[in-house]
Every structure is written in structure tokens, then in C-alpha cells.
Design a protein around this nucleic acid. Structure first.
Lengths: 182, 182, 182, 182
DNA sequence: CATGAATGAGCTTTCATTCAT
DNA sequence: CATGAATGAAAGCTCATTCAT
């Protein structure tokens, strides 16, 4: 893939995260990426297709991440590891996560990415359920939903609700809670 | 407040929820509400100000809702009642909640509503903390954050992630979990 | 109808005739008509709809013109009169006729105006056949087609093929030919 | 001439006929012809020059056709033969004739091809006048204009005006009309 | 309180053409 | 001969906002 195409994706990701998809114009992207409009449309069919390509890349990264945790260790350890990974990503790529929330909730972008969003949810759910299955087969479903809700809720509160969210404190509480699972 | 102004607010809320703030034009609103552009600008300074007025109305409704639960009953009962109210609202006003997530995560609208979003978070946090204070003064902070995260996470998963979310099952789990607090 | 809308139609007709539909931009029209783009799109749904409105106006004028000749006089006199009217229009509105040929042959505009083109052909054919029916019921069909072909062919040659077409000479020949019909 | 250049001309002719010159992009041509943009610009100076080359080819074909009829037979037979050739071409290459009308009436392409259009008209006129000269020297001019008008008018009506034109019937009428010329 | 004509900047997208490889 | 990345101008169209009536 050419250098300039990568540059466009990089800049577009940054601008979509910062200003939202609808408030980022192709002209903006071209200006920041130092390329012409013609070039962008040579590499991408439309503005939407840039979004799809970015979102797909992130989905693939998440899939890889999910595979790492399904190791051979005990389920409790796997959950601890999963929590660690998620919280560290959350702190590191704050803007990327905000961009993801943004496009998932905006009706227009949501429609465009519906398939990928579904796919992501399934990847995460299977990954989590795989762990809880080892603890309690009959309760693994509800436990998975609860766990994912807690993670997503914390992310949401941290990223977009509370100005000074005690992320560390909440993480410790979560780790403690999932240390002993009968 | 005039009938036509109410009509504009009602239609705007519906369209913002359905298509997003950026993808709803003033012309759309006028057409659907059967009023002229001049009239809308007579009642509202700008498109943004319609959004602010809608969001403020919802915030006030939430504040009223929060007051209801701070009754004289036992803290456990208060939490059960709070959960019941939230889940019932969630099912009833699905679109309104989606609209709220939408504007809270889109950078442009987020900036416009920053103050109200903060205010809302504080209202909810105080309301929840007021209950947990009666159970454990030293742990009330972290418990409140965890509780709010669970609620928000469930809402997010139900509204925008999983196509067929087991809302009832999750609600029962949550009620069970908060039935006995030492 | 507002003054400015009329101005737009007038200017658009002139520019379409002079440069063709595809080579006339909305910016061109706005510049010449001294109005903003927004105004044009306030009055017309699209560039196509301007074309349709112009074409429909001309069709209506033609329909009126057709009715004038169906008078009570003898068929030979009616044909002479029809020829006179057509040749006088041809000389007077040369650009308008060229514009009509242009849009009727260009694939894009042809599709847009298909219905009106058909309607026009029927109006003219009925009008001509109405005259020839009085002369020979069984040959009126073929005579009408021949007459229309001659008229259209002369117009085409005059407007777009020969640089110095002997329009008067051809008209006299045609008048002579249709003076005595058995 | 290279295979690929021929392919480009063939595809361009087809697309110009189908969609018009202005609505056919170089990218379209490249895609359909399975060649790169660079190659097309290696063979042709510009998009216009493709049009000129196509039109010139057709003009040359017409010139050859004209020469065939100027045989040693009687003038009446020559006209009958000319009519037969023209009607047979009209039916065979309907799209090619529509393309020719299209570019001759669209102002932009008209300017580009002005010279060739004039040349063509002269070729045809001389060819026809050569026949009528043998019948009546003093009336050959006006008779030629009338004959050409009839042919062009029939073509125009058949190709672009009437949806179900009785081409055979009209042809028979024309043959009958020009069978006996005093 | 109510209308809708009018503006002008900005939007996404298309396109003929060039040029390094 | 052949490719396709890259350009930049221009296209049709949208939209929040203003203002005379």
C-alpha cells in the first residue's frame, strides 16, 4: 500500500476522532495529509469507504487482541489479563476509543458500519464467554453480559461522562471482584 | 409556550434521534413540523439552541426522576426502585436514549452540551452516592462508580451493540446482586 | 412567478441553446442571471428540472400554435398556413430550435425529456393528419409522415448542416408542391 | 495501427453513442477497453482527438459509399439505389447514426467537428446533385435540397422522434415518388 | 407571530490531463 | 508501449442563517 494512502488513513482517523465523521470534510483531510482531493478519490471510492477501511482495521486489531488471552492459564488469570489489556488500551488510545463510540452511535455512520459492529460484538462476546464457560457453564451467558456491561460502562464513563474519572481505583475494584470466582 | 414551538421541539427531537444532529437540516424540521423557517428562527436563536433546549428538558426530567428515589425507605429498597425506574425508562424511550448517547459522543454536539452533560453526571452520581452512603461511607464512592458503570454499560449494550440483548435477564441479575448489601 | 425565477429560466434557455445542457454549469447560469446558487435551488429541484420546465413551456407554446391552423378553411389553405407559420418560427427562434434538437439527441437529456418528446410528436402528427384526412382518408397516414419528414429535414439542414441554406427557395418549392392535392 | 488503439476507438464509439460525448469519461473508456490512461494518452492527444478520429473514419466510409452510386446507369436507377443503400445503413447502424446526430447538434462537439460536418454535407450534396443534373440542370439545385431534406427528416423521425416509425412504408413511398422523373 | 425569497460558503465527487517508472 | 499515482479546477448541490414583507 502506498505511503500516501497510509497517510490519508492516519490523518482521517485522527480528524474523525477529534471532530467526528460528519464534521471532517474531505478538504480538511487533504489539507492535513498534504495530498490532493483527486488522490484521495483515486484510493478511496468515497468518504464513507475511508471510514469503513479504518473501522475494519481496528476490528482486525481487536480480533488479534482477543486471541492473545485465550491462553492455557486458569480462567481467573485470563480475566485478570483481559482487564489489564483493556484498561491499558483505554488509557493509551483514548481518542481512538472515543472515535469508535462516536461512529457507533451516530445514526448515519452506524448504518454504514452495522455489519462490522455486529461482528465486533460477537468476537468480544465469544472471547469472554470462552473464559466464563470454564467457570460455570450454566451461568456463563449472563456472567459474560454483565462483565461486558461493566467494561463498556467504565469506558463510557471514563471517555465521555466524568471529567476526572478514577480509572485506577475502578480497575482495582474490578480486579478484586473477579479474583475469586467459584 | 406556543403550540408551534412545542411542535418544533417535538419534531426536532424525533429527527435528531433518527438521523443525528448533523444530518437533520433546518429545512427538514420546518417541513415535518409544517412551519416556516422564519418562525423557527423567531423561537430559536440557532439550530444549536434547539438542541440545547431539548437536552435541558430531558435533564430536568432526569433530575425529577432522581428525587423520587431519595425516599425514606431502606437503601436496598431504594436501589431496587432505582433499577426498576431506569430499566422501565430504557424500554419506553429507546430512541430518546439513543439520541442522548449520540449527542454525548459526537464531538461537535458534545462541546455544545458540555455543561449539561457534566450537570447530569453530577445529579446521577449524587443521587446514587446518597444511597450507598447509608451502607458504607468509606466505600460509597467506588460503589457508586461501579453501579453507574454497570447501568450505563447495560444501556449501551442494549441500545447500540447487541441486536437481541437479554435485557430482562440482565435486570434480574442486577436486582439479585444489589439485594443484600452488607 | 417571481421575477428572479423568470430571469433564471430566460438565461438558462439562452445558455443551454448556446453551449448545450452539459456545458452549461449552474455557476454559469447564476453569474449571468445575477442570482445566487441557493436561490436557483430554492426555485428548482435540480439542473434537470430547469430543463424540464423550459421544455414543457415550449411544448405548450407548440400546442397552442397547432390549434391555430385547425381552422374552417380548405385543407390546401391550412397546409399553406402551417408551412408559413413553421418557416417564420424557424427564422425567428433559430437558437431555440437548435436547443431543441440538441436536447432531443443527447442521450442524457433525451432520457429526461422522453415523455415530453413523445407528447410533442403526437401533437404535431395529429394536427397534420387532421388536415390530410380531409384530402385522402386512406393515404393520410403516409402523407403525414412524409410531410413531417420534409419539414424536419429542412429544419435540420437549415439549422445545423448547411452554412448558407436557401431557406426561401426551399419554402417556395414546398408551398408549390402542396398547392394542389388531389 | 495497434490492436489496443483500435479497441479504444471501438469502445469510445460505443460509449459516445450510448451516453453522449460529455457523459463519457476517459476513465470509462479505459475501464471498458481494459487499457490504462497512459496508453490512451499515448495514442491520442486528448479526448477531443478521439472524437475527431472516429468522425473522420465515418466520413471516409460515407465518401466511399457515395462513389458507388455514381455509376453509369440511368439517373432514376441511381436514385433508387441510393435510397436503398441509405435505408439499409439506417437500419443496420442505428446507434452510429444517433451518435452522429448527437455530436452534430451539441454545441461543443459541433465546434470541434465543424470542418468535417461541412465536408460531409458537400460530399452528399455533390453526389445527389450529380444525379439530378442528368434530369434537369436548372432545377437540380432545389431538387437536391428537397431530396436531402426528405432523407434527413425521415432519419431524424425514425431515430429520435417516433417510437414506432413505419420505416418500410415511408421507404416505399419515397421509392415510388422518385421512380419517374421527367 | 409568520412567511419564504435570497445569500454565500462549503460540501462530496468527477474529470481531463500529466508524468515518473 | 504501458502503468497508475497524482493533480487541481470545476461540477452539482446543501445548508444555516437573514430579512423584507
Amino acid at each position: 500500500m502506498s505511503d500516501k494512502k497510509n497517510k490519508v488513513i492516519e490523518i482521517a482517523t485522527m480528524l474523525f476522532a477529534k471532530n467526528g465523521f460528519e464534521n471532517t470534510s474531505m478538504a480538511n483531510i487533504c489539507l492535513e495529509a498534504n495530498v490532493s482531493k483527486g488522490l484521495v478519490y483515486h484510493h478511496f471510492k468515497s468518504k464513507e469507504s475511508i471510514l469503513v477501511e479504518i473501522f475494519t482495521q481496528v476490528t482486525n486489531q481487536m480480533a488479534e487482541m482477543g486471541e492473545k488471552t485465550t491462553s492455557s492459564s486458569k480462567p481467573e488469570a485470563q480475566i485478570q489479563q483481559l482487564i489489564e489489556i483493556i484498561f491499558s488500551q483505554l488509557k493509551k488510545d483514548k481518542h481512538l476509543f472515543q472515535f469508535n463510540l462516536n461512529v457507533m452511535f451516530q445514526p448515519t455512520t452506524r448504518k454504514i458500519l452495522h455489519e462490522q459492529i455486529e461482528q465486533r460484538a460477537n468476537i468480544l462476546f465469544k472471547s469472554v464467554k470462552g473464559i466464563f464457560d470454564q467457570i460455570s457453564a450454566e451461568r456463563s451467558n449472563v456472567l459474560s453480559y454483565m462483565f461486558i456491561a461493566e467494561i463498556d460502562g467504565i469506558a463510557l464513563n471514563y471517555l465521555s461522562i466524568f471529567d476526572d474519572y478514577p480509572l485506577e481505583m475502578v480497575k482495582e475494584e474490578l480486579l478484586k471482584k473477579y479474583r475469586n470466582l467459584k
